[in-house]
Design a binder for these strands. Structure first.
Lengths: 171, 171
DNA sequence: CGTATATTATTAGGATGCTAAGCAAACCCC
DNA sequence: GGGGTTTGCTTAGCATCCTAATAATATACG
């Protein structure tokens, strides 16, 4: 193969974009996430909840399974990477749906503890029954080894990003 | 090592979650994306635009660099993985900011062609000047080889997901 | 003790995303 | 050529996310 201007370098020259590994990786991550949302949104809608609501329900269920007695809005905010005002709204709607409850926290009059109701627990069980195959279907483009590789790379990336976010929030 | 209940299987038993490679990969992808948004949002805000607006501007700029004369809203919708009504809103605001213009399309009275204004083109240039280091900073947790691996895995996943989305939309 | 600071949750206002529904123009096909 | 279908964009209504500002409680410290 003779040295010819590659498609990338031609595009970089014309458009000013770099298309280095970092750009390609970031773009593919954003694109993959967009496609996953496209698939997951109608899936959750079948159960009458949104993806964000499911995030809260799943987090509460995990916390419950770990023996904790409810999570404060701040805890949910931290675990879900979502700001407190957004959590307030999601919890409002979940409460209106009768899936969670806001309880007072004994030692702290400011805080509120969110817990699953019986109805919420039932919904989580129902979703989880269908969840395995759904997730497998989404990741079916990769074999288990590749899925593990992806997990490893993203874990490493996540650690780095948490560092970035932490220093951004302290300064 | 003796056969002991692993942390995963214990958690799976308690919480009903699987924690198979597919689950781990999906969760890490969602988490990484959330962290990236946390970092990118304030970055774009410095230039007076949002991430979605930047997506449109960058797409228009690429299209322009490829010699195309404007993109219809439908084209933007397809490239950005966003439904047409959402594109309408983003373009409304970009137009109000004077960064893009809606022109009529010669052969089709329904369609509208979106193009960058001079001001929009200047903003893209200004953002691109800072963009390389910003993206490198985000991906700095991975070396170039790992970045390429990530891109390859996500590309494969994307192909699979596009198939899923396509069959979902034809049925 | 009592004030200053920090934490917890909420409200207000703006931007994005979706689905469903509507309108106008273009297309298809008999 | 005309009726039915498809396409392109928009509007309406809801859920999510954000930042900034408020209110109330806890904590720290002089």
């Amino acid at each position: 193969m003779k040295a010819q201007p590659s498609a990338e370098s031609a595009r970089a020259h014309a458009g000013g974009t770099a298309d280095r590994p970092a750009d390609l990786a970031l773009r593919s991550l954003v694109h993959a996430f967009g496609l996953i949302e496209r698939v997951m949104q109608p899936y959750f809608a079948r159960f009458g909840v949104t993806g964000s609501q499911w995030g809260v329900l799943r987090t509460l269920q995990r916390s419950e399974a770990a023996g904790e007695a409810g999570l404060r809005l701040t805890d949910l905010s931290n675990r879900l990477l979502v700001r407190p005002p957004s959590v307030t709204g999601v919890i409002d709607r979940l409460e209106r749906l009768g899936l969670v409850a806001r309880d007072t926290v004994p030692g702290d009059l400011r805080a509120k503890s969110v817990t699953l109701t019986r109805k919420g627990r039932e919904l989580v069980t129902r979703v989880l029954a269908a969840h395995g195959p759904q997730v497998e279907g989404i990741l079916a483009g990769l074999n288990p080894g590749e899925q593990a590789d992806l997990h490893r790379l993203l874990g490493k990336l996540t650690s780095h990003l948490e560092g970035l976010v932490a220093e951004r929030e302290t300064e």
